[in-house]
Every structure is written in C-alpha cells, then in structure tokens.
C-alpha cells in the first residue's frame, strides 16, 4: 500500500475511534449547561443556546449534591489511606521478610483472587448488621481496608529492593519498623502513587457494595445518589448530565494528572509474576 494512504487511513481511524470515545463525554458536558427541557427537542441540540449554571445550582442547592460529593471524597480517601498502609506492609513482608509458610500463604491469597467479591456480600451484610455498621461510612470503608490485588502489586515492586540495604541497616541495629519506615517506604514511592490512584478510583466508582450497605440517603456516595436521582428525574436530562459531570470529572482529572502511574500499575498488575 502507498505509505501516504496508509498514514491517512491509520490516523483517520484513530481519530474516528477517539471521537467515539469522547463524544458521549462531551455531549454530557454540553447538555449540563443547557436550560431545563432544552435537550428534549427535535432536532436534539448539540450546544446550549445560552449556557447556564442553573443545573449545577439546582443540584447543590436542592438535591444535596454537595453532601454526596463530600461523602464520596471522605469514603474514597479513607479507603485509600487505610488500604495503602495495610497493603504496603503486607506486600513488603511477602517480598522481603522471611517467615515460615510465606510462599504457601501468598499462593493461597492469589488463589482467592478467583472468588468474585459478590459471593462475600450477603454474609458481610449480616456481619456488619450485627456489629452495627450498616448504613454508616465505616460500613463502606471497612471491607476495603486491604486488597489482595494491592498486596500483589506491592510485592512485585518491593522484590526489587536490594537485600544488602536491609541487611546493612540490621547490622547497624535498626529495628524492622525503622527499616520499613526510613529505608523501604521512600523506595516504594512510585508504587505508592500507583496503588493510591488505583484504590481511590475503584472506591470512587464502586457501586454494588455501597448500594447494599448504605440504606439511607444521608451517607450516599455520588454513584448511588446519581442512580437514585436518575430514577426520580427521568425527564430532566440536563440536571442528570450535570450530576454525571460532578461524578466523573474528579476521577478524570485525577487520571489525567497521574496517568503514567495508573497505566504502569495496570500493566504490573496484569502480568503474571
């Protein structure tokens, strides 16, 4: 084939794919600035006649969006911080500390990855009901405080920490905790960023478990609030699109800012180790 034609074909196809990926998101943004009812017209308008923030004001003033945004931020940040701490410690232990049964325990954890999380949800609900955590922030946070995937990710990365470094510190009489805090953690910084953004995005986008454990609106996260708004306001496409923007924009921006770390983690996590 003519190389110039090939070039046009390849870049043309890429542009078409990019348009398909982006158009629904751009349409959401555009409709969110339309006046109520404007999008339900024929032909469907692509851009607002007079851009307005009305839908956003409506969401924050009357639909409690500010509260849901804070709930989402609070829950996702708490899960990220707690899961980061426990996964880092466990991943490091699996990679660098010797103890009886290490390989077998790790293999068992990897084996447990085949169990879909939903299998645990029914008894988990009963367990949390017994200890009084249903319909609370803690009910969403607690089961997410450690993940097998996170432990695996940290272990893969931490295996690259040189043993001599740790041995030298031990000979100098440093405690294991000190070695972890002052030598290991600084070396694990890249994987910390990766794991943090992965955990945060997953927690932010999570739907099924919060839907089960949060029975009252006051603790709703953004996806839950959006799903329930969508059922009550089927006709209000402009309002719903503004709600979608509020839900999607924070994670999209976070991804754009830390893209390199995110994609690295994706590859590290899906390559067999």
């Amino acid at each position: 084939m003519n190389p110039r034609l090939a070039k046009v074909l390849i870049n043309g196809s890429l542009s078409a794919l990019a348009a398909a990926a982006l158009l629904p998101l751009l349409w959401m943004l555009s409709v969110s600035f339309m006046a109520p009812g404007e999008a339900s017209a024929l032909p469907p308008p692509l851009l607002p006649a007079h851009a307005t923030l009305h839908n956003y004001r409506e969401l924050f003033a009357h639909a409690g969006m500010g509260r849901y945004l804070l709930n989402s931020l609070l829950i996702s940040s708490a899960i990220t911080a707690l899961a980061l701490a426990s996964n880092l410690m466990a991943g490091y232990a699996f990679a660098k500390l010797r103890f009886a049964g290490r390989e077998r325990l790790f293999q068992a954890l990897i084996g447990a990855l085949v169990i879909p999380a939903q299998v645990a949800m029914l008894p988990l609900f009963l367990l949390l009901k017994t200890i009084g955590l249903v319909n609370s922030y803690a009910g969403v946070i607690v089961p997410g405080m450690a993940t097998i995937f996170g432990i695996y990710l940290v272990r893969q990365y931490a295996r690259g920490v040189p043993d001599e470094l740790l041995e030298a510190a031990r000979i100098d009489g440093a405690s294991e905790l000190r070695i972890f805090g002052q030598i290991v953690l600084p070396l694990l910084k890249p994987i910390m960023v990766t794991l943090a953004i992965f955990t945060f995005l997953a927690a932010w986008n999570d739907f099924m478990w919060p839907l089960i454990v949060l029975t009252g609106q006051e603790h709703y996260t953004l996806p839950l609030a959006l799903a329930s708004l969508a059922r009550d306001h089927v006709q209000d496409s402009e309002l719903m699109m503004a709600g979608s923007v509020v839900t999607v924009l924070p994670v999209l921006l976070l991804f754009l800012a830390l893209q390199r770390y995110y994609l690295q983690g994706l590859l590290l996590g899906s390559v067999k180790g």
Binding site: L25, P223, L226, S244, V248, V251
Partner: peptide, 10 residues
C-alpha cells in the same frame, strides 16, 4: 476511568 453509573446515565 469514568464512573459506570454516570456514563450509563449518559
């Protein structure tokens, strides 16, 4: 990276 619920609404 978008939220399933939000883009499903779109």
């Amino acid at each position: 990276v978008t939220t399933v619920v939000a883009v499903a609404v779109i």
